[in-house]
């Protein structure tokens, strides 16, 4: 199987995963992922279209919660681990780009 893992792909994955990878990390990960992916790609050998995917090991359905208030945190609890807070809110530095 031709390798799909390139340094550019790893760098792009780092952007998607919000991890600032150094050049050294990119290079190392490219080599390691290449070996790993070669080994795990074999799942597609047996995963034929007629087989259903299992996303939950034990099949359940319709697990619901009654619409009743509970589990509230106090504002102090909400903020208790905040790296930075102001006005009862979490403070973060400038956001690049636009609102979603």
């Amino acid at each position: 199987m031709v390798s799909e893992i390139t340094p550019d792909l790893v760098r792009h994955l780092g952007v998607l995963a919000r991890i600032q990878l150094s050049d050294e990390e990119v290079e190392r990960l490219t080599g390691q992922l290449d070996v790993i992916v070669d080994n795990i790609a074999k799942v597609s050998e047996v995963a034929t279209p007629d087989i259903a995917a299992t996303s939950h090991p034990i099949a359940l359905q319709n697990v619901f919660r009654p619409d009743e208030v509970g589990d509230l945190l106090t504002p102090a609890q909400v903020l208790q681990n905040a790296p930075e807070a102001a006005d009862g809110r979490f403070r973060v530095t400038a956001i690049l780009g636009e609102e979603q």
Binding site: V78, T93, A94, E98
Partner: peptide, 12 residues
């Protein structure tokens, strides 16, 4: 607005 803001506050 978001452009030019110094920092942002988050309320969940």
């Amino acid at each position: 607005r978001i452009q030019g803001a110094e920092y942002s506050l988050v309320d969940y």
